[in-house]
């Protein structure tokens, strides 16, 4: 047998620390009122069905899949807005890189407008910006993409609530029970601390985990600023013993 086990491909996962995640019902975020289950989740260890998961290595990504500045361009014109490289490492709770996993992202344009038929915000659409892309992490767990900085936008919740600039992320890992959706915010943005959706995360240290850091070192000179956003997925419990478990 192979001595290398992908995280989550075998063995069990650490139990999810549900107190670290937002509870289902968060009154400050009104959409949870009728959508939050009222029964508590039934806690069970994962079975083979949850310890396995889809893999995406066989799919060939298009050259522009991780370039939101150009992947929706209608006429070759690049998207309008402040140019960014967003990158980071996908890790597990044991601080081990999660290679070859699919990371998807979507966001509003520079004015804070989503390209969606139900979106009614008056900020203008950019004809050359779709607002979505994807990447697969490399052997060291790194992903990266080019985009423009999303604008803040108002939304119907309280009387005058605004979302801070953010990018939505979907990450797979290697086990279906590692599946995660989250949002990334930008270092230094005062709007973060006023947002009811950010506020669903109970712990300030948890919120800090959602804030990408400006990375001057990886700036593309005369082109784009860089932000780093690392993502941590659930980890396997038996890390220290994997070679012996698997090899003898």
């Amino acid at each position: 047998m192979s001595a290398i086990i992908l995280p989550g491909a075998d063995g069990s996962l650490y139990q999810r620390d549900m107190a670290w995640h937002p509870p289902a019902h968060t009154p400050g975020y009104k959409s949870t009122t009728f959508r939050a289950p009222r029964h508590s989740m039934l806690s069970l260890g994962p079975t083979k069905s949850e310890l396995s998961g889809p893999t995406f290595g066989h799919e060939t990504l298009g050259a522009l899949d991780n370039d939101l500045i150009r992947n929706f361009s209608q006429d070759g014109t690049e998207a309008i807005g402040q140019r960014l490289v967003v990158y980071g490492q996908v890790l597990d709770e044991n601080a081990r890189a999660v290679p070859n996993t699919l990371v998807e992202f979507w966001q509003a344009n520079a004015g804070g407008r989503y390209r969606h038929k139900k979106e009614g915000y008056l900020a203008a659409l950019d004809p050359n910006f779709g607002g979505f892309g994807r990447a697969i992490t490399d052997e060291n767990g790194f992903y990266s993409f080019r985009t423009v900085k999303p604008g803040a936008y108002p939304w119907p919740n309280g009387g005058n609530d605004w979302r801070p600039a953010h990018i939505h992320f979907s990450v797979f890992g290697h086990a279906f029970a590692q599946r995660l959706i989250t949002q990334m915010y930008f270092e230094g943005d005062p709007m973060i601390w006023q947002c009811p959706i950010v506020g669903t995360v109970p712990d300030k240290a948890g919120i800090e985990q959602l804030i990408a850091r400006l990375d001057r070192h990886n700036t593309t000179p005369m082109d784009a600023l860089a932000y780093r956003f690392d993502i941590v997925l659930r980890g396997r419990r038996s890390t220290m013993f994997e070679n012996r478990l698997e090899g003898n």
């Binding site: 999810r16 620390d17 670290w20 995640h21 937002p22 975020y29 959409s31 890790l91 597990d92 709770e93 044991n94 601080a95 979507w106 989503y114 969606h116 139900k118 979106e119 939505h168 979907s170 995660l180 959706i181 989250t182 949002q183 959706i197 950010v198 669903t200 995360v201 240290a205 948890g206 919120i207 985990q209 959602l210 993502i231 941590v232 997925l233 659930r234 980890g235």
Partner: peptide
């Protein structure tokens, strides 16, 4: 040794 990244809603879009 690391905390899992907190989940956030997928949102309306």
């Amino acid at each position: 040794i690391l905390k899992e990244t907190p989940s956030q809603t997928a949102g309306p879009y």
